[in-house]
Amino acid sequence: MLLVVAAAMIEDGRVLVQQRPEGTSLAGLWEFPGGKIEPGESPEAALARELDEELGVAVDPAALVPLTFASEALADRHLMLLLYRLDRWEGVPEARHASALAWADSAALRGLSMPPADVPFLEVLAPLLGGGAVLR
């Protein structure tokens, strides 16, 4: 089992997505920032750490609100991806471990190529971003 956390960082009806860099699996695809949970770490602590490492933003783990999850069979293990909503952080996000960052509204999200595990999140995020149901 691979436990991964991600954040839907929402601001002004848009959510932050990052593009996976060349040389990594799923390079070029857009995803929600986050990463693996380390042994002994709570999901919230892991996500706060990952957002600091990946984006240079400080997050109070108590500000992370569980939103939804995805379950995806991979070649050699099973991915459990936990998505949290985040409306408050300190600092300006910068692409430290990604090719690019983008603030996307519901319509823009529909046009992005994303990893299979992230796609179900679009339906949940659409109402939060001021959009209707997402049809893919």
Rank of each mutant, 00 (worst) to 15 (best):
V5H: 02
A7C: 12
A7Q: 09
A7H: 09
M9W: 05
I10Y: 02
D12N: 15
G13N: 08
R20Q: 09
P21I: 08
P21H: 12
G23T: 08
S25V: 07
W30S: 02
E31H: 06
E31M: 11
F32I: 04
G34D: 03
K36D: 12
I37V: 15
E38C: 02
E38A: 12
S42F: 06
P43V: 09
A45S: 13
A46L: 04
A46F: 03
L47I: 10
A48Y: 03
R49V: 08
L51T: 02
L51F: 11
E54C: 05
L55D: 02
L55G: 09
G56H: 05
G56A: 10
G56W: 05
V57N: 06
A58H: 14
V59R: 03
D60E: 14
D60M: 07
P61N: 05
P61W: 09
P66H: 08
T68R: 04
A70D: 14
A73G: 10
A75N: 06
L79V: 08
L79H: 04
L83E: 01
Y84K: 03
D87P: 00
V92I: 13
V92A: 13
P93C: 14
E94N: 03
E94H: 11
E94C: 08
A95N: 07
A95D: 13
R96F: 07
R96V: 12
L101P: 02
A102P: 02
A108L: 14
R110I: 00
R110T: 02
S113H: 12
P116L: 13
A117L: 01
L122A: 03
L122Q: 06
V124H: 04
P127W: 10
